[in-house]
Simulated assay, not measured.
Amino acid sequence: MKDNRPLAVVVVNEAGFAPGAAVAEALGAFLYVPVRLSVVQPAPPRPGAVVGYEGSAGNVVRQLFGEGRGLVLVMAAGIAVRLLSGLPEDKRRDPPVVVLDTAARYAISLLAGHEGGANGLAYRVAAAVEAEPVVTTGSEVHRTLVVGLGCRWGAGAPAIMAAIERGLALAGRKKNDIRVVATADFKAGEPGILEACSALGAGLRVFGREAIRGVDRLFSESRCARKYFDVGGVAEPCAFLAARNGRIILPRLVADQVTVALAEDRLWSPGSGRGTPST
């Protein structure tokens, strides 16, 4: 991006207000909404975070894009593409753009994915509203490893990184194979996990208890996770959920204060089929 000003979340209709507000609050971004919505809709808790605009959303997007502001466009991808028409110049200089549909199902890294940081932004947006991040850049697609993480409260980044490195060694894999780190929503704010993601250059996928309970029966149960969080585990279920049609290649490994599991995406190829992933 061209400057360090806050991200901008742009909404075009009432359907996008709620997910846009949730993303703006989670990411510390400004929420740009049509004036009519800024008056009748409840604002996010941060004072001054909502900017009402008059006229077309295209004018707002052009202004923010020209300022180098990272953008989250809460709208259909087709609308976003039309609003951005003629604006991109260079993938090394353009600001990152992520599109979030109004149902908060998919957070799509649309522009400046790798160089500009839109891939990482897509993961952050997805985590804010429990959406599926969609990243299509070649460098991302060919990184196929998912790290599932659980940890005790306050576990530091050095301990987390040591556990990940131990797991990678056991699986015969490398750090640059890692596509994403996955954990439960009640662990998503752990500074150690966030620092580890930053050190690895990986996004963070977050799953709620309901999603975890849907698959935790497939794995060995953690008594601690069941007692304190009412789920069967964290590392293995989250790794499994984040993998693309994948499988667990390293079951739950307990290392001091950290639990690690590794899963691998299964990339599509002709004749590969779409069978149920093995565990």
Rank of each mutant, 00 (worst) to 15 (best):
A127S: 14
R92W: 15
V129F: 04
A126C: 12
A162T: 08
E67V: 11
P6Q: 09
S139Y: 03
F219W: 11
V134M: 00
M161L: 15
P133K: 03
R166Q: 10
N4S: 14
C151F: 01
R36I: 14
T136P: 05
D94N: 12
R266C: 05
R46H: 11
N176M: 10
D177W: 04
F207L: 02
A184W: 01
F219R: 11
A80G: 10
S56H: 09
P133G: 05
L7H: 11
A155E: 02
A182P: 02
D177H: 05
A196T: 03
I164V: 15
D256K: 14
E132F: 03
R205I: 00
V129E: 03
V40G: 12
A112C: 10
V50N: 14
A157Y: 01
T102K: 01
L204A: 04
P133C: 06
R62D: 02
E54A: 14
V39E: 15
G16I: 06
L170A: 10
G55C: 07
R274M: 15
R244N: 01
T279V: 15
G150P: 07
V134H: 00
L87Y: 06
P158V: 12
R213S: 11
L200F: 06
R217E: 13
F65P: 01
A261H: 00
R274F: 15
Y32H: 14
L110G: 01
D177M: 02
E264C: 04
A21M: 10
A225L: 03
A43M: 11
E264D: 04
V39R: 15
N4A: 14
R252M: 09
T102D: 04
G86C: 14
G86D: 12
E264S: 05
A103L: 08
L168N: 06
V99L: 00
P96E: 03
V23A: 03
D216E: 11
A163K: 09
D101V: 00
L83M: 15
P44F: 13
R69I: 14
A49W: 10
K175V: 09
F229H: 08
A162D: 11
D185H: 05
I178Y: 00
N59E: 15
E89N: 09
D177N: 03
V181W: 00
H114A: 07
A76P: 02
G78N: 09
K175R: 15
G167N: 04
A103F: 04
V134G: 00
W153P: 07
A15R: 09
G232D: 00
A261V: 01
R179A: 07
E236G: 07
N13P: 06
G167H: 04
A171K: 04
G78F: 09
